[in-house]
Design a protein around this nucleic acid. Structure first.
Lengths: 204, 204
DNA sequence: CGTTGCATTCACAGGTCTGTATACCTTACG
DNA sequence: CGTAAGGTATACAGACCTGTGAATGCAACG
């Protein structure tokens, strides 16, 4: 029934097609709502092949999220490493990557969506999703540290919240250009964190 | 099949029980994953009664979101109207309401989750969810206007992003106290928007 | 040539899903 | 008393779901 997640970079040709079809359908239609029959049919593959390659739907879901995370990480890492950027600009570079990313992602964050559909913390996909958020938060903290910002952990958490909010709002109210808004806000937060001591309002 | 959404405040006793059971199960287990059979059984009601009262699962889902929105709105509106608050403090008051709200909502935002599961924009629940976000954004803008903030529309969008991000992060990484972080950040944003001209970083 | 791995075809098991049909019971109220 | 509304009980239709079984084709590689 269950199986270990295969390495998305070394897949047989059929498995590749299956994964690509599943990625599209899961993201656009929702994980629970999309059945393996449709995935197999749209991949030009039989269900048997699907199960031979992935072992279970849950594993296919986890593989889908895993590969998506790899693509996202790669995009962010190249954006952050752009040579023309200052250390300060690098801190908000993930928001630039997000701007590209959402062009092909009108339905919000695939990881948040997966968490919404799969409440069971034991589900393999659940941990992939949580891991992605943890990675992003740690990345922000590292970038803030490199930019010699006073409280990098605090800034990182703020930026992660902004980041997720922008993605979520894009699915809910596409007419608001939430990514640009979040990007500007992130720059302001970095500004505030660098220019001397920061006025911090009481949370009442 | 489909039916009009009933008024959640005037329900027969059975319908009340059905809606309450459905609310819990939908939120905790996901909408698609929870079937009407288990809802009926856990409500101590037959499926026939459920269909007599709500007509379809889709309508039941929409009613669930509608009532949840009413409760949330009420909580926010009382928080915003607290007499001891200044106009400036009112702007971030929804974040205080959010602090209470998430005590009973460890699985993130029900509306975002619903959008994740029901991509069809024609689905009645879809519009209830989008409406909630629009309402919150407009509320922020109104509060910012009342507090004589320079660009209320801009600030409102920033605060909505923060708000949604805090909710989403709570589901993904509960160990981060995202609501408190977002509340503090919101206060800082309001501070920055009130104290003279605001340095706005280039989004690169 | 023979093996090995990949994929195919087709059928099926065992559930669960939404939604409906029929017939009966109970309670409130005019 | 009589009626109507709300609810009960049970069974069913028809579709879809995940996952399995058994037999076969085919191409590459030793």
């Amino acid at each position: 029934m269950n199986a270990t997640i295969p390495d998305p970079t070394t897949l047989t040709p059929s498995a590749r097609r299956i994964l690509e079809t599943a990625s599209t359908l899961f993201y656009e239609g929702g994980i629970t709502a999309v059945g393996v029959d449709v995935i197999a049919e749209r991949s030009g593959v039989t269900k048997r092949t699907l199960y031979n390659r992935f072992g279970s739907k849950d594993t296919l879901v986890a593989t889908y999220l895993l590969e998506r995370e790899m693509r996202w990480r790669h995009l962010v890492e190249t954006a952050v490493a752009a040579p023309e950027l200052t250390a300060i600009q690098r801190v908000t570079a993930p928001f630039d990557a997000l701007g590209e990313w959402v062009q092909q992602s009108p339905r919000g964050c695939a990881f948040i969506n997966a968490l919404a559909e799969l409440p069971d913390p034991e589900h393999p996909a659940h941990q992939v999703a949580a891991e992605e958020k943890r990675w992003l938060c740690n990345l922000f903290e590292r970038l803030a540290t490199d930019a010699h910002i006073a409280d990098p952990a605090d800034l990182a958490k703020r930026l992660v919240c902004l980041h997720e909010g922008a993605l979520a709002m894009r699915a809910a109210l596409p007419e608001i250009d939430s990514v640009t808004i979040a990007n500007q806000t992130a720059c302001d937060l970095v500004d505030a964190a660098t220019s001397g001591h920061q006025t911090r309002g009481e949370p009442l």
